[in-house]
């Protein structure tokens, strides 16, 4: 890493030869690139998680938005079938409904089998499994619409329970929302920690070079000229750290997403990163560099103002 940031200094080489060589830049860096690398890696991972969660929530809610489920909960199988048929017939007439379909009883049985622990030979029929009717609306399942469907269903089927599908997942969405806030908070904390690290490093560097800074002041050097040296040094450190951090973060994300993809579950399958998300992630090191340089500049200028 030290090599990387000193290489970057080399590239600058003669290009900026007119810049006054005032302070020994190599001595400014120390552990700074590593600190930045860790911060960037963690920010990248936190941001990727936040974005993936957002995408998962969006995919899931798009699927569920127009979905309403009607359950017919009654113990008598014949009555259950009658009410289900009545509800299907009634709801087909509603203008906001795009499609109504009763979930086949065999499908239901296979669905509940692993949960109820039934084996071949067990009398699944004897269990009061509700009839399920899947309703697709033309628009989102708002409370008003659900109420309207309920008003249509209950007169013909007294044991019908009408719920928006999104409503079932409300706790999951709430959890995802919380996790997103957590990711955002984590990123904010990482930014604060970066600022603090840069601030301390800059103050430290200022202390080490106080003598030289005084001389440069006496020779007519301006605060901005001196600050520029620190900024540039910080920019190189942050660039080296940012690159390594980004690399590490991306490798982590890709590895994690492969493992999640292996789970093959519906909700997780939605947790992918789009190309726009990758742009955001690629911008993180740039934002880190900007933050570090700006912090260094303000720290140095503030300290210099206290000198004569």
């Amino acid at each position: 890493m030290g090599l990387l940031s000193s290489l970057m200094r080399q590239w600058r080489g003669n290009g900026a030869a007119s810049d006054p060589r005032l302070l020994p830049e190599a001595q400014l860096s120390g552990p700074m690139p590593w600190v930045i690398a860790i911060m960037i890696a963690m920010t990248v991972i936190a941001a990727a998680s936040g974005l993936a969660l957002r995408n998962a929530a969006q995919t899931a809610s798009a699927d569920l938005e127009g979905g309403v489920t009607v359950q017919i909960v009654t113990a008598a199988p014949a009555e259950r079938l009658r009410q289900a048929a009545a509800v299907v017939a009634a709801l087909k007439q509603a203008p906001e409904v795009a499609n109504v379909q009763q979930v086949a009883q065999e499908d239901l049985n296979t669905l509940v089998e692993p949960w109820l622990g039934t084996r071949p030979g067990d009398d699944v029929e004897a269990l009061p499994i509700p009839a399920l009717i899947d309703v697709r609306l033309k628009g989102p399942a708002t409370a008003d619409r659900v109420a309207h469907l309920r008003a249509l269903a209950v007169p013909v089927a007294p044991s019908a329970r009408v719920d928006a599908q999104a409503g079932w997942l409300a706790p999951v969405f709430a959890a995802i929302g919380t996790l997103q806030w957590l990711a955002g908070g984590l990123i904010a904390l990482l930014a604060l920690a970066t600022i603090a690290a840069v601030l301390l490093a800059s103050r430290n560097a200022l202390g080490n070079h106080r003598e030289t800074i005084e001389i440069v002041h006496m020779l007519g050097g301006t605060d901005k000229q001196i600050a520029r040296v620190f900024q540039r040094s910080m920019a190189f450190d942050a660039a080296a750290g940012g690159l390594v951090g980004l690399l590490f973060g991306v490798v982590t994300i890709v590895t994690l997403s492969r493992q999640f993809a292996g789970l093959g579950s519906g909700m997780v399958a939605g947790a992918v990163l789009h190309w726009q998300d990758w742009i955001v992630i690629a911008a993180i090191p740039l934002a880190g560099i900007a933050l570090a340089v700006l912090t260094a500049r303000m720290t140095v200028l503030a300290a210099l103002r206290r000198m004569l």
């Binding site: 006054p20 060589r21 005032l22 001595q27 003598e211 001389i215 440069v216 020779l219 007519g220």
Partner: peptide, 18 residues
Amino acid sequence: RLVDHLSAFDNVALPLRV
């Protein structure tokens, strides 16, 4: 009050560079 890490040349050049 010469700058330790700069060569004699760079020390003398300092006022001009500044």
